[in-house]
Every structure is written in structure tokens, then in C-alpha cells.
Design a binder for these strands. Sequence first.
DNA 1: GAATCAAATAAGTTTTCACTTATCTATTGG
DNA 2: CCAATAGATAAGTGAAAACTTATTTGATTC
Lengths: 104, 104
Amino acid sequence: MNDDDIFRALGDPTRRAIFEKLATGAMNASALREGMAISQPAMSQHLAVLRNANLVREERQGRFVNYEVDPDGLALIAGWLAKYRAYWPARIDALKDLLKDMDQ
Amino acid sequence: MNDDDIFRALGDPTRRAIFEKLATGAMNASALREGMAISQPAMSQHLAVLRNANLVREERQGRFVNYEVDPDGLALIAGWLAKYRAYWPARIDALKDLLKDMDQ
DNA sequence: GAATCAAATAAGTTTTCACTTATCTATTGG
DNA sequence: CCAATAGATAAGTGAAAACTTATTTGATTC
């Protein structure tokens, strides 16, 4: 799990769509495919890339494999972004409001 | 400027290295190349991709073109990341500390 | 205004990577 | 134990994209 894997994984729009769909709730690979013009092997390969980047993690449940967002990958992006916080001072207030919301 | 352009731009490790070097301070394309095994046209092409993603902006200064980090692109990443804030509650405290630092 | 230097662009080549089809593995239920 | 189903893997193909060399554009200085 490093910047390289993560940004490469998110660099593909299809993979980002998969991730974003997963973020609405954990589901298995078949459910992910629904309404998403993508073959079974392609989905499996994309999920492998996302998993390798720690953006997604799996949990086998019988014959199905359930996928969910892995916070570790997101944290790494947040860390990357934080390095450049000097460049967005104007956005600090918005971020503060965000954190206040999260407290409730 | 959209998620696609940004993540595609950052998906390439060379381009991310260029961006990260630029984040240490604005400089022109030649200065960026120093110690960075990369040809002049390649650098120019990478900068064009970064510029197109609003991660970097240019300002011609005579014969040189000065490049600097563009906060707009970073803000878009922050926005993308914020959508998934539900997934990193454990990191809230760390982020708060970060904001406290920024106030000073 | 010719020479020089920074950077961009054009065109072609090579490498990477997202796909395909085919096959295999794992798990369940009859 | 066998048929069915979910998913992974293997191998090959085509397209995208990161490079190359050559040339062009823009600006400076002598």
C-alpha cells in the first residue's frame, strides 16, 4: 500500500466508479456489476487492483465475496493531501465545518 | 478540470514526482528537470497534463515559464475525499490536530 | 537581425494496461 | 458426488499513453 498503487488505481475511471459504488454500501462482485457494462473478469481484475491499493477489502461469505471500502487507502490519500495543505488556506473553514458535522 | 483529469494526471508516478517537487516552491521547467532523468519534451508534456488538470499553473516570465501548484486541483481532491469521510472516523482527531496547527 | 536559449509541438515508437475468451477454483445444494 | 453458481486466474489482443527525435515558437541578447 503506497501512493503509487493508490493513485494508479484511482487513475482509471471505471475503477473509480466501482469504488464510488462500493462507498454507497458493501456488496459482492456480482452486485457491483449490475448496471455497469463490465465483464466478470474485468470486474475481478479491477477489484484486485483496488484491493492491492488498500482502497477496498474483501470478506468471503460462502460462495460470495463481499467487498467494502477500506479506510486505510483513504487515509493515505488524506495524508498525501495534507502535505499540500499550505496551498489551500481558503478552504480551512469549510473543512472545520465538516469536522463539526462529524462530531454529531 | 474534473476528477478524471486529476486522478489520471496523478496516476503517473513521474507526474506525481514533478508535482511534489513543484510543491516545494515554484520554478521553471528547466529547474524542474534538474536531477530528474527526464527529457525536455517529456517534461513539457507532463506539465501540460498537470496544467490541464488544474494541478499546476504557469506564468511566463520572459524566456522562462514559471510553474506553481494550483490550489484548485487540490481542492477538487479534497472534495472527492470528503465524500468518503464516513469511512475514516478514526482519523478525525488527527485531522483536528492538523487544523489546529494551521491556525498558528 | 542573427544567434541563442527555454519551452512547446509534431510525429513516430514502445510500453503499459484494460480488455477479451477460456479455463480453473471454491462453495453450495440436490 | 455432481451440477450449478461466484469469483479468480491465464493468456492473448488492442488501444491508450509515455516516451523518443526532430522541428517550431517565443523571447532575449549581442
